[in-house]
Design a binder for these strands. Structure first.
Length: 200
DNA sequence: AAGTTACA
DNA sequence: AAAC
């Protein structure tokens, strides 16, 4: 376990050991059963390459009308609760008393990526965003608060946790590619990224 | 533009 | 990397 700081991003390499990663996957199973992954469409009609679902009071969705937090899955059901061990992880890594209200689960298959973007659909940017990597390695790119600035990249491995607060809270970031089947955590391969956020 | 394409 |  080591802590790296890059452009204000706090990168906890190896924050979760293998047993903790496996335990997390187990608590995600019932969430995926209750609130299945869906393939969101972005404004303009383009499909996002990740599949997603959420836990918590709010889930983040994209559709033709935009990006926002909503209280129900596209199929109508409410989002499952955020598992306790994720709330504990949030408190452990942020030291905050305030609980996150949303846990977005993004699944990256072999060709999935995520373009550079800012997380700015939340009401209060003084709270950090916490990101947990599980499964295959992902090449994470970090910029600053403007498009077109310089960027730095780092490979995120299963068990890494990134805290985006302070200067990094509104910094552009994205995932250029994954190394499919580089990890054995998910038998069928792929990368799961969990992002915990205070929304309101 | 949470994407796609093209080019060094 | 840059343009759209």
């Amino acid at each position: 376990m080591s802590l790296l700081r890059l452009r204000g991003f706090e990168i906890h390499k190896g924050y979760l050991d293998l047993a903790s990663q496996r335990a997390l996957i187990e608590v995600l199973r019932p969430i995926l059963r209750t609130a299945p992954l869906f393939s969101p469409t972005a404004p303009g009609g383009r499909k996002l390459s990740v599949r997603m679902t959420s836990a918590g009071k709010f889930g983040w969705i994209a559709d033709e009308t935009g990006y926002r937090y909503v209280e129900n899955h596209p199929k109508g059901m409410g989002w499952p609760a955020i598992p306790d061990r994720l709330l504990e992880l949030w408190h452990g890594v942020t030291g905050l008393q305030r609980q996150p209200e949303s846990c977005l689960l993004n699944y990256f298959g072999p060709d999935a990526k995520m373009g550079l973007h800012q997380d700015k659909d939340e009401a209060d940017f003084s709270f950090p965003v916490v990101s947990v990597s599980l499964g295959d390695d992902g090449l994470f790119r970090m910029g600053d608060t403007r498009r077109g600035g310089k960027t730095d990249s780092i490979w995120l491995n299963s068990g890494d946790v990134v805290v985006m607060g302070g200067a990094a809270r509104l910094a552009y970031h994205g995932v250029d590619r994954i190394r499919f089947q580089s990890s054995r955590l998910l038998p069928k391969g792929g990368r799961i990224n969990l992002t915990l956020r205070v929304v309101t």
